[in-house]
Design a binder for these strands. Structure first.
Lengths: 192, 192
DNA sequence: ACAATAATGGAACGAACGTTCTATTGTCAA
DNA sequence: TTGACAATAGAACGTTCGTTCCATTATTGT
């Protein structure tokens, strides 16, 4: 992608992040610094070709699949990336990366600190695929005493157990069958 | 809110989740099962009053502050989706939740374990807003010896320092000015 | 059952839309 | 410098928009 198109795309991404919609061409003119809808139409056509924008049936613009790509750096390369989207950067789309099966995936807030040594803090959100079957070693959401609990699934000779990652909490050995709500496939946290 | 309005709102939320935009009134008619734009206008007025919808300067609809309120699971309560606490995030996409300023945001892979006690593990990805100025206490990506390093920004009498969250690592006291690449606004991890 | 009110359907209208065209300006290569 | 091509500005146009109005239907209370 040309550098100038990256700059225009970034301005559209900011507008979308702030407003939740993409504007009409006449407004895009102002956003990208053009004085006519003609070059906006040309820009839109280029961005459509590359998967960043699409049109709705009503001829409005909507984000394309690539609209939410974000540049990603390897932390051992302090590279001085140019912000206006060096086209050679790797990119990652967070939702596509974290959510494989949207129809069976839910987000669950983490309330306690029983998994703190595994890097899961209170206030984090975990991404849960709803499944009743899990493997030993999986992070799972189980239902104990009608409450969700997040633990690692373990196995002892008497059956399955739930292992915390915090020495202040005991291993849970449920009587009877253990109910698994789902397996944890991801986690995220916001600082600001 | 009236139950019927909740149903209409849910249909609009689904449309938005799928398309990334809200449609014009004529399309909303079809979505909610009305045959005229008049009752759509009345519905929109009600939803605006309650903070679910807003208008753009171009008279298009955009999500209001409350549009993203959706039931999500709260981990202390079992099994049935119920509204989480007031201050909880709600989001249609994780990207939307974590990325506020796309044009200045990049992702950085975490390689070391110097922040392990802060719940940031090797292999995690952090979301970085590129800024040269940070506050004490912020998680920052700094550039030391031409490499990225992730630490908490601290202050000593001789200047700013970089504080790890792992006792195996020393506080870093850069000679001369410290170069801040950006501040860390979020983090995510994938398990499977 | 009847009256009052609310909700909906359909029509109308000025404004804005996306698209296309032409003229002008800008860029690049010889 | 000149010519060819690309990019942009400005104008035009048929379509669609959001808004408003009025008539009809639905709902509610007495």
């Amino acid at each position: 992608m040309e550098n100038i198109d990256s700059t225009y795309l970034a301005k559209l991404q900011d507008h979308y992040a702030e407003n939740g919609v993409l504007p009409p061409y006449s407004t895009i003119m102002g956003i990208v610094g053009m004085k006519s809808k003609s070059p906006v139409a040309a820009l839109v056509a280029r961005l459509k070709l590359q998967g960043y924008l699409e049109s709705t049936p009503e001829k409005r613009l909507k984000p394309g699949r690539r609209f939410f790509e974000r540049p990603i750096f390897d932390s051992v390369r302090a590279g001085f990336p140019s912000p206006a989207g060096d086209a050679n950067h790797d990119t990652l789309t967070i939702d596509e990366f974290l959510v494989s099966h949207p129809s069976s995936t839910v987000l669950v807030n983490v309330k306690g600190d029983s998994m703190i040594d595994a890097g899961i803090l209170p206030g984090d959100t975990v991404i849960v695929e709803k499944r009743a079957v899990a493997n030993v070693g999986d992070l799972v959401i189980a239902i104990i005493d009608n409450e969700f609990t997040l633990k690692t699934l373990g196995k002892e000779k008497n059956g399955y157990v739930l292992i915390p990652a915090n020495p202040a909490y005991p291993v849970i050995r449920p009587k009877g069958d253990m109910e698994i709500f789902g397996i944890v496939v991801g986690q995220f946290r916001k600082y600001k």
